[in-house]
Simulated assay, not measured.
Amino acid sequence: MANYLSVDDGLKRSLGYLDDDDLLDDASITRLQSSLVAAENFVQRAVGDADESFYKSDDVFDLYKLACFAIAGNWFTHPSSANSSTTAKQIIGQLRARYDEVIINGSTSGSVPAEHGN
């Protein structure tokens, strides 16, 4: 699994923290990063991981990021009882449909790789 996101890509702000917030100590940053890596793995396994360029494409990256942030934020905030959010489940459904269209069926319309991620 490839990781395309970092906590500084907006995850901190989506949870109400500033990028250099003193309330986030090293342990919290590590938990955030672990939650984000796990969320990316979760989304990629739920959608498909045969083609890494899929997640970097212009028409997919923002949805991918939103799903990962929704899951990571939920896991960070509720580490012992969190489930995937309804938002994330809906976005994963959209990503699956797009993945089937682009990767499995071979359609490339609107799927030009962008300069996102590592």
Rank of each mutant, 00 (worst) to 15 (best):
K12C: 02
K12G: 05
S14M: 09
S14T: 00
S14L: 01
L15S: 03
L15A: 11
Y17E: 00
Y17F: 15
L18R: 15
D19M: 06
D20T: 14
D21K: 10
D22P: 12
L24I: 04
D26S: 13
D26E: 11
A27R: 13
S28C: 07
I29Q: 13
I29R: 07
T30A: 15
L32S: 14
Q33E: 10
V37Q: 14
E40K: 12
E40R: 01
N41V: 01
N41E: 10
F42H: 14
R45P: 05
R45A: 13
A46R: 14
V47C: 03
V47T: 02
D49M: 04
D49T: 07
D51I: 03
D51A: 09
E52G: 12
E52M: 09
S53G: 08
S53I: 06
S53T: 09
F54V: 00
S57F: 09
D59V: 13
V60G: 06
D62L: 11
Y64H: 11
Y64M: 10
K65C: 06
L66Y: 06
A67V: 01
F69W: 08
F69N: 07
G73Q: 07
N74V: 05
N74T: 10
W75L: 11
F76T: 06
T77S: 15
T77L: 08
H78L: 13
P79Q: 09
S80Y: 08
N83I: 06
S84F: 06
S85H: 03
A88T: 03
K89V: 15
I92S: 01
I92D: 00
Q94A: 04
Q94D: 08
R96E: 05
A97W: 04
A97N: 07
A97E: 13
I103Y: 03
I104Q: 04
N105S: 14
N105P: 05
N105F: 08
